[in-house]
């Protein structure tokens, strides 16, 4: 993974949250370098710092020490080049699907006709043309998450950071969105950092699975997947990887409990 020119480079990052009566050591020294076009999953027990790491890359949190770089430049604030997809969608409820997707391009002051073309393209990409004028409360969870994905893509994100984006969806919707996400990723050459706690989801999606463990949060192992695409969840290879990764994840739990 040691790419000479990574798009994202997390260097010796640590994170402590100072609360009134205690300090939470969310991340011990963490290094992670991601190449352009990679699909990386972060997986691990809850509380092991996955969201914190993702939010540091996004620019929502500043590291206590170390730094996160994008194309070699330190991340200091959120930026449209790093789009975030939240588990609970975080759509603007007062804007229609079309207006939600247009929010970023408008905020950046792009010309009206450019915005319209862009929005049309991405509404179509995520299959919501018929719902362009619906408001978020009229949409199902899967549709909301499509809007959330479309709005970061329409805003020229190079890196899409996804924090358990499909965690709240039913199994069928989730599988459909996984397929759609892979298709978009393969078509566009995006870089995706995807947090999940489902081993199957991670193996189905990623080029690389980063296993994290808690107390304090850290990267336990970094596992490239040499599995051809499209992947078959019922294949022996898939199951073998699931077995190995499952063992890795559980050994950390064991260590923590001991």
């Amino acid at each position: 993974m040691a790419s000479p020119n990574p798009i994202i480079d997390v260097r010796q990052v640590t994170k402590r949250f100072e609360l009134k009566d205690q300090t939470i050591h969310a991340l011990a020294e963490t290094n992670l370098s991601i190449s352009k076009g990679e699909f990386v999953c972060l997986i691990g027990a809850s509380g092991c710092g996955k969201s914190t790491l993702l939010r540091i890359i996004a620019g929502f949190e500043t590291p206590t020490s170390g730094e996160a770089l994008m194309w070699g430049k330190a991340v200091s604030a959120p930026d449209p080049t790093r789009g975030m997809v939240f588990q609970d969608y975080a759509l603007f409820p007062w804007l229609s699907v079309r207006e939600n997707i247009a929010f970023g391009p408008n905020a950046r002051g792009l010309p009206r006709t450019t915005v319209k073309d862009t929005v049309d393209r991405f509404i179509e990409l995520v299959g919501l043309t018929k719902f362009a004028n619906a408001y978020p409360h009229q949409l199902s969870g899967g549709m909301k998450q499509r809007v959330a994905i479309a709005r970061v893509l329409a805003n020229d994100a190079e890196v899409v950071l996804m924090d358990e984006p499909f965690g709240a969806l039913d199994a069928m919707t989730r599988e459909r969105l996984q397929d759609e996400l892979l298709e978009i990723w393969q078509r566009t050459g995006l870089t995706v950092v995807f947090v999940t706690h489902s081993i199957e989801e991670a193996i189905f999606l990623s080029d690389r699975i980063v296993v994290m463990s808690p107390g304090p949060g850290r990267i336990e192992s970094d596992n490239p997947l040499a599995l051809s695409r499209p992947r078959d969840v019922s294949s022996p290879e898939f199951n073998e990887i699931r077995r190995v990764l499952g063992a890795k994840l559980h050994s950390h739990h064991g260590k923590k409990a001991a």
């Binding site: 959120p78 975030m84 759509l91 929010f103 905020a107 950046r108």
Partner: peptide
């Protein structure tokens, strides 16, 4: 957070 990552700050 959504607004700021979309460029509205």
């Amino acid at each position: 957070e959504a607004a700021s990552m979309l460029g509205c700050t």
